[in-house]
C-alpha cells in the first residue's frame, strides 16, 4: 500500500509537469502566434470548457446529454441581454448568465434524470430544442434570428490579448474545479452510477438526486462557457442553442477520449484548429471531420488521448520489465 501511494504521487507529478508546460505555453501564446490564431485558441478554450461540462455527464456519469447547447446558449443570452437591454454590470451579468443556465438545468434535469440511456439523450435533445425555439421565435424579447449585438466586455478586457488571458484564467479555474469534482467522493459516486446504478442504489445512494446535482453542475459550466463566448464574439445568435451545437462536444469528446479528464479538451483543440486551417483552402470541412471521427471510432476506440496514454503506459511497462 505504501508503495502504491508513492507511485501515485510520482505519476501525479509527471502529469503535473505536462500541465505546467501547457499553461506556460498558453501564457506565452500571445507573443508567439498571430492574432488570428490567438482568436482560434480562445475559441478552442471556451469550446473545451463546454466539452468538459458535457463529459461530466457522459464520460464520468455515463449518460449522454444531447441538449447541452441550450445551457451554453442561455449563458450567452443571459449575459448579452442583461448587458445590452438592462445595462447591468458586466460581472453581475456574467454570474447571472451562469445562474440562468444552472436554473434551466435544474428544471430540465428534474425530468431527464429519471430516464436512462437513449431516452435520457432524446429528452435532453427535446428540451434543448424547446429552448432554442422559444429564443428563436420570441423576436421582441430576444431579437429572434438577428441575435443580440454589441455585447462588450469591460474596457480593460477589450483587446484580444487581454480577453484571451481572461478566457485562459477562467478556463484553468473551471477545469481545476471540474477535475476536483471528478476526483471527489461525489465524482466517485458518479462513476459508480455509470458502472452499475442498481448496485449503487443498494449502497444507499439516491440515484436520481445525484444525477440531478451533476446535471445542474454540468449546465452551470456549459453556461459559463456561453457567458465567456458572448463578449468574446461581441454577440450571440440562436445558432448557439441549436442541436448541432449540442453535437459539437459529443464529437470532440469521442475524438479526444471520454475516459480521460482532458480527452474532450484535446478533441476540441484538434477540431477547432483543424477547422480553422482547412477552411483556408476548402469548404468541404464536414467530409474531413466525418472521416476523422470514423477513423477514431474504428481504430482508436479510447479516443486520441486514450491512444496516447495506452502507448505511454505500454512503454513504461516495457521499461520496467527490461
Amino acid at each position: 500500500m505504501e508503495a502504491n501511494t508513492t507511485d501515485k504521487k510520482s505519476s501525479w507529478l509527471k502529469s503535473g509537469w505536462w500541465l505546467i508546460l501547457l499553461v506556460a505555453a498558453g501564457l506565452a501564446a500571445p507573443y508567439v502566434i498571430s492574432e488570428f490564431y490567438l482568436l482560434i485558441l480562445g475559441e478552442a478554450l471556451i469550446m473545451s470548457l463546454f466539452a468538459l461540462s458535457f463529459n461530466l455527464l457522459f464520460g464520468h456519469m455515463g449518460q449522454l446529454p444531447f441538449g447541452q447547447a441550450a445551457f451554453y446558449g442561455l449563458g450567452g443570452y443571459g449575459i448579452a441581454m442583461l448587458l445590452t437591454k438592462y445595462q447591468m454590470n458586466f460581472w453581475l451579468s456574467f454570474v447571472a448568465g451562469i445562474g440562468l443556465a444552472a436554473l434551466a438545468g435544474l428544471i430540465i434535469g428534474i425530468f431527464c434524470v429519471r430516464l436512462r440511456g437513449i431516452y435520457f439523450s432524446i429528452l435532453t435533445l427535446a428540451f434543448g430544442q424547446l429552448i432554442f425555439v422559444i429564443i428563436y421565435k420570441w423576436h421582441d424579447f430576444t431579437g429572434g434570428d438577428d441575435g443580440i449585438q454589441g455585447v462588450f466586455p469591460p474596457e480593460f478586457l477589450k483587446t484580444s490579448v487581454s480577453y484571451y488571458y481572461f478566457v485562459l484564467l477562467v478556463f484553468c479555474i473551471a477545469a481545476f474545479i471540474l477535475w476536483r469534482i471528478t476526483h471527489s467522493p461525489f465524482g466517485y459516486i458518479l462513476k459508480a452510477m455509470r458502472e452499475n446504478s442498481e448496485r449503487t442504489e443498494f449502497l444507499g445512494v439516491p440515484i436520481a438526486r445525484y444525477q440531478l446535482i451533476a446535471f445542474v453542475i454540468s449546465a452551470a459550466f456549459a453556461g459559463l462557457a456561453g457567458a465567456l463566448w458572448a463578449p468574446f464574439y461581441r454577440s450571440v445568435a440562436p445558432s448557439t442553442l441549436i442541436w448541432i451545437k449540442s453535437g459539437e462536444p459529443v464529437m470532440a469528446t469521442i475524438l479526444g477520449g471520454a475516459g480521460l479528464f482532458f480527452g474532450p479538451v484535446l478533441g476540441t483543440f484538434i477540431i477547432t484548429f483543424f477547422h480553422a486551417y482547412i477552411l483556408g483552402f476548402t469548404h468541404f470541412w464536414p467530409i474531413i471531420m466525418g472521416t476523422l471521427i470514423l477513423i477514431v471510432i474504428f481504430f482508436l476506440p479510447g479516443g486520441v488521448l486514450g491512444f496516447i496514454k495506452e502507448k505511454l503506459d505500454n512503454r513504461k511497462k516495457r521499461g520496467q520489465q527490461s
Binding site: 476536483r180 476526483h183 471527489s184 461525489f186 465524482g187 449502497l203 444507499g204 445512494v205
Partner: peptide, 13 residues
C-alpha cells in the same frame, strides 16, 4: 456512501 460523505465535491476521494 455509508459515511455519508458523497456530497463532498472538492476533497480527494
Amino acid at each position: 456512501s455509508r459515511h455519508r460523505v458523497t456530497l463532498n465535491l472538492f476533497s480527494s476521494a
